[in-house]
Design a protein around this nucleic acid. Structure first.
Lengths: 191, 191
DNA sequence: GCATTCACCTAAGACCTATAGGCAAATGCC
DNA sequence: GGCATTTGCCTATAGGTCTTAGGTGAATGC
């Protein structure tokens, strides 16, 4: 009996590749087994179930994304950092659409707590040190940036901007200009 | 033989309700048949397949959302209109999470062309008439607003903001303040 | 050299999607 | 009113996915 050498890690990586090829929602335990030339049931010694697989892929994607973000932010500040971080998300989604979708997977509270999600928030907060925001506006700004990055990327990937001029690269640059201007000139709370 | 009175429209509405109850990705032809107390195969006279069902639910959600938006924008301008439109998306997502998820369903190009998606872009453009933006900045702003609304709502629904203070209502208000300020003071293109 | 563990297997049950073909009630026509 | 057609739902069937239970052979441990 030749062993396939299955481990949770190898299965997760292969699952992530599968997600990029066919889409995260089409990742299936059966297809994964097929790719390892192994019977489906064999995977259940390494994975609890198919949600477990999805969760692992999501955690992998969050880690990869956080690593890239940390890299991109190193040595940068202000608008330079803003652009770098924004491009990390956009580029990752383009290179790895399945993984990016996985990163949006709704994790159980326990899984979420142990995920790289926390690092993402911390890095956005670090980025904002280049601007003059104090709490609670800093938190609001963290959430705004997260919303714009995620919203833009998912609309662009979903084809939401596809049929209209001008091109999306132009819009992306102008949105980053606008966010930078907004952060430098954050409006005071209205009474 | 008592007839159940199946039609594509009734099935679509029931499918939308099902989506709100169990989640759009758990909408299944089988469950729908069960709810009508009918055999699964019977649905296939009214629906081409399960993707057809999903598409119909998505189109329904887009229509409902556009209707609400049109209603909310009537007679409003400026920040008042901005807030109203933003709240339409957020409230709809809270009241009808499954339908909201459906509205994000990737439609085929033909389906997308015939959808209410176009109305949404038009309404956002109409809203911007209250601000002083000319093309191409108006298009960039349309896309920015779409990104923020969609991004914020999906992060909030996905629990992305759940564990941290301050509360999300506060953030939502401040983000609308910020967007209003940004639109009134849109930065010029950097040379 | 035997017991244990590990890695993968077969078998089987429960669902879901989809197609083909059939029967009965409703409808349309004379 | 009687007949043909259409409509609406049915049974049967085939194939795919998920998951658990229990088994076997090869590697490892004593």
């Amino acid at each position: 009996m030749v062993r396939a050498g299955l481990t949770p890690e190898r299965l997760t990586r292969a699952g992530a590749e599968l997600a990029d090829e066919v889409g995260f929602d089409r990742v299936t335990v059966s297809e994964l087994a097929r790719r390892f030339d192994v019977k489906v049931a064999s995977l259940y010694s390494h994975l609890r179930n198919s949600e477990d697989l999805r969760t692992r892929i999501a955690l992998l994607a969050l880690e990869e994304l956080a690593d890239r973000a940390a890299d991109a932010l190193a040595g940068r500040a202000g608008k330079d950092a803003l652009t770098a971080l924004a491009n990390v998300y956009r580029d990752y989604a383009r290179e790895h659409p399945g993984r990016y979708a996985a990163a949006q997977f709704r994790l159980s509270p326990e899984a979420a707590a142990g995920s790289a999600g926390v690092r993402h928030a911390q890095m956005t907060r670090a980025l904002l040190r280049g601007y003059d925001l104090t709490e609670p506006d800093q938190t609001h700004a963290v959430r705004l940036l997260g919303s714009v990055f995620h919203g833009y990327v998912s609309l662009e990937m979903g084809g939401g901007f596809s049929h209209s001029a001008p091109d999306t690269q132009e819009t992306w640059s102008r949105i980053l200009d606008a966010l930078d201007a907004l952060l430098r000139n954050w409006p005071p709370t209205t009474p």
